[in-house]
Design a protein around this nucleic acid. Structure first.
Lengths: 143, 143
DNA sequence: GATAGATTGTTTCCCTGTTGACAATTTGTC
DNA sequence: GACAAATTGTCAACAGGGAAACAATCTATC
């Protein structure tokens, strides 16, 4: 079988590992949220709303989670159906402001511990110091 | 709007950044391979075959790239159509061995430089030493 | 103010990947 | 050897996400 000689490349090796680890984490994450009939992206929306502390527009949500407008519409559809968020009319009538409801906040509060424990578990192979180092290196990559 | 107090958590912050960076790299990667009518996963198959140095079964390909059997079938379908790989019959008649063709190897050789350059560019915010550190930390996470 | 251009959310269509069912084949056990 | 169980590849059905087209609305320029 023909074979191409591929030179060792520090950057590419790190890159491949990054993609591999990231991929695995997304899968695990998705599996975890499946138990509540959500995807990690749904949960992500709740976290973003909670972090914002005030209702924000769908497009702003999309910006913060690097997702398309179209997809945000679908995510909000489900979250609204579950009563976790509300669509509020805005002065600018093109915009729908998305607000976290009491139900949504309650859900966040109740599930948070489990999520944080899972995060600890995923990063357990690293010491706290190593986790900090990793965090700093990743910061540089998030331009 | 109700708000849940979320404690700072080193592990979760690192985790989120990992997922974010990984996600961005997948997108960039997909965009890059789009110019040849492939996805990054198609290219990944070629790399795996080249790395193996000999024909391997579809299920083995799936194992190495963490993808389902069904998806490997589709990936190989396209690669075979482009004459980049061949399906060979095996002694075990359930198995199809996948072999890289001359055309596939030529494609790999011609595109490789571009791929490696893109990797260098993506990791440019880090020094070589930092890239090595990152690589080592990620190794620990790939159990 | 009128009109062209941007912006926001929605809808539709498409692409990639997974799951589950299936047929063909192999392995293991009696 | 015969029959149950496991393995491999394929197919159909389905879900998540993106791009483009669309309507409603706002902004800017004249």
């Amino acid at each position: 079988m023909p074979k191409v000689k591929i030179p060792n490349n520090t950057a590419e090796q790190a890159l491949i590992k990054l993609m591999r680890v990231g991929d695995r984490l997304w899968r695990e994450s998705d599996e975890r949220f499946g138990q509540w009939g959500l995807t990690d992206n749904h949960y992500n929306v709740l976290r973003i709303l909670n972090g914002a502390g005030e209702p924000i527009s769908q497009i702003e949500i999309g910006r913060r989670m690097l997702s398309s407008r179209a997809n945000v519409t679908k995510l909000i559809d489900l979250l609204e159906e579950k009563k976790f968020v509300n669509r509020l009319n805005c002065e600018d009538r093109r915009v729908k402001l998305i607000a976290l409801t009491e139900v949504g906040a309650k859900f966040l509060g109740e599930t948070l511990r489990q999520i944080l424990e899972a995060a600890e578990l995923s990063l357990k192979p690293l010491t706290k110091t190593e986790q900090k180092t990793l965090s700093e290196l990743l910061d540089k990559l998030l331009h």
